[in-house]
Design a protein around this nucleic acid. Structure first.
Length: 564
DNA sequence: GCCGTTTTCGGCCCGACTGTTTTCAGTCG
């Protein structure tokens, strides 16, 4: 992943937020937001020479980015940072609280953080404020509570990209270096990143000097903890080369998995620690993680399965499932282009898909009910024709013309039935009315599942990690229907969605539901997000039989009833 | 601030929902 792009995009997003808070023109705010998105989704690494070719970047923003690439910031950003406390920007992360309210609260009441806001509401200081009635204040308190629960955690996309950045920066100074912890177990929310290295002590100084380090929390020869610009803690540990495998095992966890492993060692009269597996003074295994599992007389347990939920027992019996791997995927069934809210053209997305070696690839732009996307029947048909033309260039890649439908409050979807029947695949997703009562929401999903033209339910819970809670529905009932109607549940790999979440994947599998691990790409770099969806699938013990886009196209077509 | 089968100004994805308003502002997708 191109890091300079991500950092520049973050700076532009921050600038857009601060610019909005300072009362800046809404259209200019949108220009910065648009540019940030385009920069993050730009397929090449950003340089002063190509920055002007990013769509949505004109002379003014190009100048800011160029300065950012050189100095790690730009003047206008520094100015606004000095004027508006970071806490005021944090205020806008409270759901239903936007820039207008945030700046009013700051300027009129001196409220400069979500905590200060909670305090002011509790103290009654905001009673009777114009525009903020009792219902609004209650909502704000609830939003602040949500924010607190997510505090200190980031989604896996942020953590992975930080970890890879650290490893890339330090790998020349280390014999071995890798990430462990919950990140290696592919959890969707990460509290801190654990990195292990076999390296001389001087690596610690190098680590502390990295540009993204904002604070050194603890610094010794064996372990250094820092806080980063993303608000994410990173621990770097130097471990002896001879106990690398034991250390990786120990620091990958989970705690419950390690307890089960140590119990097994004790039963054999041995001892397992982060330094190795020992029989008295004798080292049985230590340098390689795989040797530890082998010596303990069990199958190797892939990190995403290490949750202490029966995997140790299964591995001892030799009954661990052969979980699905990233390399098993032969297609992607949910992607966008710039015809709706994607960044790249159809031709560019398809070319990138072909590079990834897929057997099939579905283009699924939004349908007319998401009015903001301005989709029309005519546009859709023209896209289909363009796709058919492109198909001639890619004999090995089967291009599928699909759509991402909008599931309305009553469970109906957009486009008439005869139009739907002509698509190769239909994803259907909820994009609004997230607060329906549980019964209505359940009926809504069941209606969608029972629609014969709906093949896949996209990002089913619609959660956004740290920003939006999952919708409330009776998933047990929905999955029963989905299994009967052969409606596929999506594992949306976009890391802040990570949707379905693991526990619901397990529940759905229990009912016999099949899954599609899709990227939901809105830009070329997003195609690689499937690795996160595979992490979810592995954590739920899914095999290739559970995941439809590991199947040959003929089997997939037959399953969704589009084989005529 | 960006962009141009509107060529250098005048638009900029549009609509709905919510709570509060008595006609609408703010927020969200």
């Amino acid at each position: 992943m191109p890091r300079a792009n991500d950092e520049a995009a973050a700076a532009l997003r921050e600038y857009a937020d601060l610019f909005a808070l300072s009362g800046g023109d809404a259209f200019r705010v949108r220009s910065y937001q648009k540019a940030a998105k385009a920069v993050a989704g730009f397929a090449q690494d950003l340089t002063p020479d190509n920055v002007r070719t990013v769509p949505g970047v004109g002379d003014a923003i190009a100048k800011k980015i160029t300065q950012f690439l050189k100095d790690g910031s730009f003047r206008q950003l520094d100015d606004l940072r000095a004027k508006i406390p970071d806490g005021v920007r944090q205020l806008t992360r409270v759901p239903t609280l936007g820039p207008k309210t945030a700046i009013m609260l700051f300027e009129t009441y001196g409220i400069d953080s979500p905590d200060a806001l909670a305090e002011a509401i509790a103290a009654g200081r905001l009673a009777g404020v114009k525009g903020l009635g009792p219902k609004s204040l209650t909502k704000l308190l609830k939003g602040i509570e949500q924010l607190r629960q997510n505090a200190g955690k980031v989604h896996i996309g942020v953590a992975m990209s930080m970890a890879e950045q650290v490893i890339a920066a330090l790998s020349d100074s280390a014999d071995r270096i890798d990430y462990a912890g919950s990140l290696r177990r592919m959890k969707d929310r990460i509290g801190d990143v654990d990195i292990l290295a076999v390296a001389p002590p001087s690596i610690m100084a190098e680590f502390r000097a990295q540009s993204y380090v904002t604070e050194v929390i603890a610094g010794g020869d064996a372990k250094t903890s820092v806080m980063t610009t993303e608000g994410l803690q990173i621990d770097l540990r130097v471990v002896p080369a001879e106990s690398w495998g034991a250390a990786m095992q120990y620091f990958t966890g989970s705690k419950e998995h390690n307890v089960a492993l140590r119990e097994r060692a004790v039963k054999k009269g041995w001892r397992l620690s982060e330094y190795g597996l020992f029989d008295g003074e004798d080292v049985l295994a230590a340098a390689e993680e795989k040797d530890i599992y082998a010596k303990l007389g069990m199958q190797y347990v892939p990190p995403p399965l290490r949750e202490g939920i029966g995997e140790v027992e299964a591995a001892v019996r030799g009954e661990l499932p052969l979980v699905v791997e990233l390399s098993d995927l032969v297609g992607d069934l949910h992607t966008h282009t710039d015809l709706t809210d994607g960044l790249a053209s159809l031709a560019d997305m398809v070319a990138a898909a072909a590079d990834r070696g897929y057997a099939y690839y579905a283009v699924t732009d939004h349908a007319p009910d998401l009015a903001m996307q301005r989709m029309t029947l005519d546009k859709m048909l023209r896209q289909r024709e363009e796709l058919r033309q492109l198909q001639r260039r890619y004999p090995k890649l089967r291009l599928l013309h699909g759509t991402e439908l909008n599931i309305g409050p009553d469970g109906s979807v957009d486009w008439p039935g005869d139009v739907l029947a002509d698509f190769d695949v239909c994803v259907a997703s909820v994009h609004s009315h997230f607060d329906q009562p549980r019964e209505e929401m359940t009926r809504r999903f069941i209606t969608a599942c029972e629609n014969p033209n709906v093949d896949i339910i996209g990002h089913p819970t619609t959660r956004k990690i740290g920003r939006r809670e999952p919708v409330d529905a009776d998933w047990d009932a929905i999955f029963q229907v989905a299994a009967r109607t052969k409606t596929i549940m999506e594992i949306d790999s976009y890391p802040d969605r990570s949707d379905l979440p693991v526990d619901l994947v397990r529940l759905a599998k229990h009912h016999g539901v099949k899954f599609s691990v899709d990227s939901d790409s809105h830009a070329i770099p997003h195609l690689a997000y499937q690795r996160f969806g595979i992490g979810i699938a592995q954590r739920a013990w899914l095999t290739v039989d559970d995941v439809v886009n590991t199947w040959p196209l003929t089997r997939l077509r037959e399953f969704i009833g589009r084989d005529h």
